[in-house]
Simulated assay, not measured.
Amino acid sequence: QTQHLELARDIARRFNDSFLTAREIKKLRGGIFKEPKALLVKTNARVMSLQDGTAKMSKSAENDDSRINLIDSPEVIRKKIKRCKTDSIVGLSFDDETRPECRNLLSIYEAVSGKTRSDVENEFAEMSWGAFKPILADALVDHLSPIQAEYNRLMNDREYLYGILREGRDCANHMAEETMAQVRKAMGFADVNDLYPMSASEGKERFAAATESH
């Protein structure tokens, strides 16, 4: 979330300013710790609950009908949309602040259909909820279908999936080791490998010898 990125950015900036010169920060293209930036979509960045148009849609909400899960089946999606909170007014619009559920459902349709806001407004300006809900459900099903297909493919190929996880782990460990070496150097701490250079096998032998002697 944005507040977490802001905290990480503050920590990165504080460290870089405390232990690096301006020249070093420039040479490292922003410092040892890069300041993260939020990537936010310009429209529909905040999706609201299907049961309360003033509350954020959340995976931790107790009521599963309040959200669309990425792996919900088409039948479940249609059932949730059919049950979602609406009003009795005919004609759908983004602009009426007294109808938060209307704005939310239209925004969801706009996001998954790829249509412009003006096109959505014109399409549903005189439509009832009974006619709109099946259209929204179909759009959600179509939008999530390729995501679900890829999810199922990966879940059915565990060997490939675990291979990707191991590769990511090894890459992250390598990057972390390089970063921590820079951190220790910037803070004036000697790297243990510089003080006691040895291979991994030599380290294991010394450890084994030390434990045997005790």
Rank of each mutant, 00 (worst) to 15 (best):
G114L: 08
A111E: 07
N152F: 08
A139Q: 14
V183Y: 00
A190V: 14
E126A: 05
L165K: 06
L140N: 07
G130K: 02
A190G: 11
A186P: 00
D191Q: 12
P146Y: 06
M175T: 11
E110F: 11
N193K: 14
R117I: 10
L136P: 01
A131Q: 06
E159N: 11
L154P: 07
Y160W: 15
N122F: 15
S118I: 14
K115C: 14
D138E: 13
L165I: 06
M127W: 04
V183E: 00
M187W: 00
E150S: 03
E123I: 05
P134H: 04
E110P: 08
L144G: 14
A172L: 10
K185E: 02
S145V: 09
Y160K: 15
D157G: 00
N152R: 10
P134C: 04
V112Y: 13
L140W: 06
R169P: 06
L140E: 12
K115Q: 13
A176E: 08
H174T: 09
V183I: 01
N156M: 04
Q148K: 04
H143F: 10
R184Y: 04
Y109H: 15
A176F: 08
E178M: 15
V192S: 15
E167T: 04
Y109G: 05
R166C: 10
L161M: 14
A137F: 06
M155E: 11
A176G: 07
N193F: 14
L140F: 07
E150G: 01
D194A: 02
R153G: 08
G168Q: 02
N122L: 13
A139I: 10
F132T: 08
D157R: 00
E123S: 13
M187L: 02
H143C: 07
D138P: 05
G163I: 01
E121G: 12
R166L: 08
G163P: 02
C171W: 07
V112P: 11
S145L: 11
G188A: 01
M175E: 10
K115G: 12
D157I: 01
A111T: 12
A131W: 05
M187Y: 00
M175Q: 14
A137Q: 03
V141L: 05
R117L: 10
E126W: 03
I147E: 09
N173G: 09
G188N: 02
E178S: 11
M187S: 00
Y162N: 15
A172F: 07
P146M: 07
Q182N: 01
I135Y: 04
I147N: 08
F124M: 04
T179H: 08
R153K: 10
A181V: 03
A137E: 04
A181E: 02
S145N: 10
E159F: 15
E121F: 03
Y160V: 14
M155R: 14
M127H: 03
G114Y: 09
Q182R: 01
A139G: 13
Y162K: 13
Y160F: 14
R184V: 00
E110D: 12
E110G: 08
